[in-house]
Design a protein around this nucleic acid. Sequence first.
DNA 1: CAGGATCCCGCTAGATACTG
DNA 2: CAGTATCTAGCGGGATCCTG
Lengths: 141, 141
Amino acid sequence: MATMTAAQRNARKKAQSKASYDAFLAVCPSRKLLDRISDKWVTLILCALGGGDEPRSLRYSELSRILAGVSQKMLTQTLRSLERDGLLTRTATPTVPVTVSYELTDLGLSLQQMVRGLKQWAETNMDDVLENRAAHDARTA
Amino acid sequence: MATMTAAQRNARKKAQSKASYDAFLAVCPSRKLLDRISDKWVTLILCALGGGDEPRSLRYSELSRILAGVSQKMLTQTLRSLERDGLLTRTATPTVPVTVSYELTDLGLSLQQMVRGLKQWAETNMDDVLENRAAHDARTA
DNA sequence: CAGGATCCCGCTAGATACTG
DNA sequence: CAGTATCTAGCGGGATCCTG
């Protein structure tokens, strides 16, 4: 094992983790992570930084404009959390006033692929859901 | 337009909806729908009913066993909501005691494809996130 | 511009008890 | 078995005010 490369150890650890985490289990850390990423603001921030096509870096004020109606608290809070988890990077340029930009990491980009589908699904199937609700409400009225 | 078939009208409506919903907008209904489906329990229920491979129907008690630690309230509440939105069907068989089973609809199955990726992402990248958190906390300590 | 710090309300998750 | 009903503590999240 002493001759194992870093890449090999990493691959080995990945293989282990695939088997050792299960979000169905209440005590599993991945349950909490799933809870964290299952969030409206997380999805929208990741989608904004993921862009329609190419990933792009955005400033705080740009994000708050794109995510219409988000409070500063939720935006800052969610950004901090995503930064801590290594999903995005925060870069402060010491201008006056200071300029801060956010950018997805590779890890964040991989999650963005997932949540992007979620956002699109919501937009695409909104009408169907609305109809189902109306039908259901009429049936149980 | 009077000669339009139902399928044509449906296709036309789909095309319209793709353009008219945008979850980035605060007032858009799809924002609320995104919020609704961005939920730990929604993801886990859909994954359970989606199965590892083939979709399967599950009973209430089976679901509560698979989703370890879920309260009856949250399980029932989430199931009702998903039923109302047309993502799953509830079937009560009048035995004694009554037997109730839940099954994904086609719409639910399409969403399951999305959230399944989310759950897997959380399990696969748990280690990376844990390391990022440790590194970040050490840096800002 | 990009937040930090507080206050505070609403609602919702969770626990408990009961039922057809 | 498959829920319903009720209560409460806790916190998510918005509003507001302040700062480097």
